[in-house]
């Protein structure tokens, strides 16, 4: 249903000394696939996400979402931001229904779905709260609920759990997996955390910096649905070691 095709894409920022943010990127995401972009800061993984979202545009190469080149951001590609980016003056409920409202969808059409999504992320009792009254993890759950309410088939997630404590991060990862199992959107998940990428993704693109490029694609042969125990399995540990060594050698 929703796929992403990127071929030989580059992004250069033209300043006094041009900065090559991304060089010769090729990747594809099948419908319903969970893909992780893994790499150190400065490898351009967030830039790549911004290009797919339509916030920025590539300098060369091709980028297709459902066989079309995105000209602007849109509800088909829902973005979950690092700091949630909720509207602080709106309640949880108003944040979640912002999308349908600006798209002039009648209330009876989105109300049920919005309620359903809030329940799915476990925030049905917090709809009248303001974002500032929520914890970091809860804010991210609102961020997820609002793009699910929007009906996005592609989820672009920019280190969404990076600022959370380890325990909250784990429960958010499990929540995301269960949401993904139920709705099956395509997900591109940006992270610098190897364990997170391995636990969540079907395939991992390992990136390196200066210029930002893809070093390798790794398929994660762990079964679904994944459990916490999988993170201590033999495959998991050997993949982690392999990625670590790869990152180290590309830094050397």
């Amino acid at each position: 249903m929703s796929n992403i095709e990127i071929n030989h894409l580059s992004k250069t920022y033209n300043s006094k000394s041009p900065v090559v943010a991304l060089q010769d990127i090729s990747l594809s995401v099948a419908s319903g696939e969970f893909v992780a972009l893994l790499g150190p800061s400065g490898c351009g993984k967030s830039t790549l996400l911004n290009l797919i979202a339509g916030f920025e545009f590539p300098s060369s190469g091709s980028l297709k979402v459902n066989n079309e080149t995105p000209k602007a951001p849109g509800p088909d590609r829902g973005v979950v931001f690092q700091e949630a980016a909720l509207f602080p003056w709106l309640t949880v409920w108003e944040n979640v229904i912002f999308g349908p409202k600006v798209n002039n969808i009648p209330r009876h059409e989105y109300e049920h779905r919005a309620n359903q999504m809030l329940r799915m992320v476990g925030l049905e009792d917090f709809r009248e709260h303001l974002p500032v009254q929520l914890s970091g993890g809860m804010r991210q759950r609102v961020g997820i609920a609002r793009i699910l309410t929007l009906g996005s088939q592609i989820l672009l997630m920019d280190e969404p759990f990076g600022a959370l404590d380890a325990q909250t991060r784990l429960s958010m990862q499990e929540l995301l997996l269960s949401v993904w199992q139920k709705i099956k959107p395509s997900i591109i998940f940006v992270t610098h955390d190897i364990d997170e990428a391995l636990f969540l993704a079907d395939s991992i693109y390992v990136m390196s910096a200066r210029p930002g490029r893809i070093d390798r694609k790794i398929n994660v042969p762990l079964d679904r649905p994944r459990r916490l125990e999988d993170t201590s399995s033999e495959i998991f540990r050997s993949l982690r070691l392999e990625i670590l060594q790869m990152i180290r050698s590309s830094h050397g």
Partner: peptide, 19 residues
């Protein structure tokens, strides 16, 4: 990112200004 979030959800320029 607030502007980007609103654009991503499909807000028009006028909606962006007002909302």
């Amino acid at each position: 990112n607030l502007v980007r979030a609103a654009m991503m959800m499909g807000a028009s320029q006028l909606q962006l200004l007002r909302r």
